[in-house]
Computed example of a mutant assay.
Amino acid sequence: MRRRSFICAGIGAMAAVATIAARSGMRRHSGAALAFGTTIGITLMHDDARQAQLAIEDALSAAQSVDRLMSIYNRASQVYQLNRDGVLARPHPHLLAVLAQARELSRLSDGAFDITVQPLWQTFSAAAQQSALPSDQQRRRAHGLVDWRQLDFDSRQARLRGAGMAITLNGLAQGYAADLALAAVQARGVRHALIDAGEFVARGRRRGADPWTLGVRDPREADALAATLYIDGCGVATSGDYEAAFTPDFAHHHIFDPALGDSPTELASVTVLAPNGMLADGLSTAFMVMGRDRARAMAAQLPGVDLMTIDKQGGVWRSATFPPTA
């Protein structure tokens, strides 16, 4: 799954938290677990320690369940089985929800978002193990297997029409996991929470009147920030060419343009704010493929969506209502 694109700015000094706790009864609670090949984390403010702990356990369990269903590596996952067999009986409702979002994003983006790009990832990854790029013939063969319209699904089965086709939900699953985790903490009565499943969702405040804070990393300097965001009531996701690059110049990386059969050439990173984590996750991938101008036009038509793009020359563009940066 996707590697970290954000740096959490954290809750603040413990002395400050203690002061708030004494005034309001709110205390900071946190927990973490392994999923998506990384560590996922839950941070919340709540006045009942027992309920807070139960909320964290429920949230982590919900996120891990998405990983178990949608991993492309776990032989027991439904996505692995679909890729292996070309057909899957009785898809889980969570998988159906993510597949439906994928289809809608493919339609809205005119195919720029496409979960059937997995053969391209496999082909480039195999070549990278030999410190090479795929041959033109290898790339054309993989490219010929990419077409989101060749995936059929309903509650009875999911089916890939073409032999050798495969899907990846890496552009949606972590955002969906964050959404489920947030729903789990809210079901326990928690109103102030930050969910980090590789993509982020946040509700309420981190302490007092202070909003949750995220730092967006610079696409070319791993220890530098391109922006610091104050967020509440939204999902946040970043896609970048640096996350899994096949070449040192970042020209070839883990995001693929389905029209090219290779990586998009304009942008180094895209950060998206959206009403939920899954939509932010998917749009960040779609917008990387579409480039700034097409992404800007599409975002303007979607309620509650804002974006920041950074091109390969370092040029930054933000939509008009993108949150002010600290």
Rank of each mutant, 00 (worst) to 15 (best):
Q122D: 14
T168K: 02
L214R: 12
A274F: 07
Q157H: 11
A112K: 13
V272L: 01
D58P: 03
S77E: 04
L172M: 04
V236L: 11
T228H: 13
K312R: 15
A326H: 14
L44N: 01
R159E: 09
L194Q: 06
H252E: 14
V201S: 04
R217S: 11
Q150M: 08
I310Q: 01
C234Y: 10
R205M: 12
D136G: 15
S106C: 12
L69M: 06
D136Q: 15
A89H: 11
R2P: 15
W212Q: 13
A100I: 07
T247M: 11
D67P: 00
V236W: 05
R28L: 13
A268F: 00
W148V: 03
V79N: 00
F36M: 01
D257W: 08
R159M: 08
R68W: 13
W121F: 15
L267R: 00
N276P: 07
C8P: 08
D210F: 14
T247Q: 13
A33Y: 06
A295S: 11
G233R: 06
L194D: 05
A244I: 08
L283H: 07
Q51L: 15
L120M: 12
R23I: 12
R23W: 04
Q137P: 01
R107W: 08
I195K: 00
V270F: 02
D196Q: 05
D306N: 14
D249W: 07
R318D: 06
V87Q: 09
L99Y: 08
L283F: 09
A299F: 02
P323A: 00
D136M: 10
A163K: 13
Q53N: 15
D67W: 03
A32E: 15
D257C: 13
V185P: 04
Y73I: 07
I11T: 09
R318F: 05
T19I: 00
T285E: 09
N83R: 04
G12M: 06
D152C: 12
S106L: 02
N170I: 11
S269C: 11
R149I: 06
G171E: 02
R191I: 12
L95D: 02
A163I: 09
M290H: 08
A63G: 14
T213D: 06
R207P: 00
S5F: 14
P303D: 00
A158D: 03
R217Q: 14
G86Q: 06
R188Q: 15
L302E: 02
V305I: 09
L133Q: 06
A49W: 01
I231S: 01
A181T: 04
L120D: 07
M278N: 10
L180D: 00
I231G: 00
L273S: 04
P303L: 03
P93F: 03
A274M: 08
P93Q: 03
P275S: 12
D47P: 03
A245E: 10
E221M: 11
L194Y: 05
H29A: 12
V117L: 04
G171I: 01
Q64W: 06
I42N: 01
V87Y: 07
N74W: 13
H92K: 02
H92S: 11
R68H: 15
Q313G: 14
T309M: 07
I231D: 01
M26P: 04
V289L: 03
D257Y: 10
